[in-house]
Simulated scan of single mutants.
Amino acid sequence: HTALLYAGAGAISGHNYSLWHKGWGGKGVAVTCTWLILYLPVTGALCCLAGGLAVLGLGYLPLGAVLIPTLAVPIAWVQYGPESGIILLLAAAMMFWRHKNGLHRIFLGQEKQFFRPKS
């Protein structure tokens, strides 16, 4: 389980901050979801589902992206101990950092909403 924890953390770090692209990469949502489902099968899938429902309900992609790993932190901490909780907390912090501009635009009311009719 420890190997999966650190392999997943490395995968999302590498996806977010690719050495091939001089530290720039994607925002790692798909990789994070995959890692959570592999590491915490049932609860990881539920966290991804909750993030997806938040996006569908509110229309903000950055909110769902940050919500997914954040919901998994306490579950990992309780199930597998502090080491697991801290690594998932770092993953949530990384996701927050990658989506900070979008979250700021949500706060300002300037972020584009998906799945919403044009008004």
Rank of each mutant, 00 (worst) to 15 (best):
H15D: 14
I86A: 09
I37N: 10
Y80T: 05
A3S: 09
V55Q: 01
P74R: 10
L61N: 00
A93E: 03
I12N: 11
I86F: 05
R116D: 03
I68Y: 00
T2L: 13
L49M: 14
L90I: 08
L90T: 02
A72L: 03
G51N: 07
M95D: 05
C48Q: 06
I87N: 01
Q110S: 12
S119K: 13
W20T: 07
N101P: 00
I75L: 09
L53N: 01
T70P: 04
T70M: 07
I106W: 01
S13H: 07
S13T: 15
G52M: 12
I87C: 11
A11D: 04
R105N: 07
V29S: 13
G28A: 15
G8S: 09
T32G: 09
L49H: 07
P62N: 03
E83M: 10
E83I: 12
I86T: 08
L53F: 09
W97Q: 11
L36P: 01
L53M: 12
S13Y: 11
T32L: 03
Y39C: 07
I37S: 08
I87H: 02
R105K: 12
A65Y: 03
G52C: 12
W24K: 15
A93D: 01
G81M: 01
V29E: 06
Q113P: 02
V78A: 14
R98H: 14
L36K: 00
H99I: 02
H104M: 13
N101A: 15
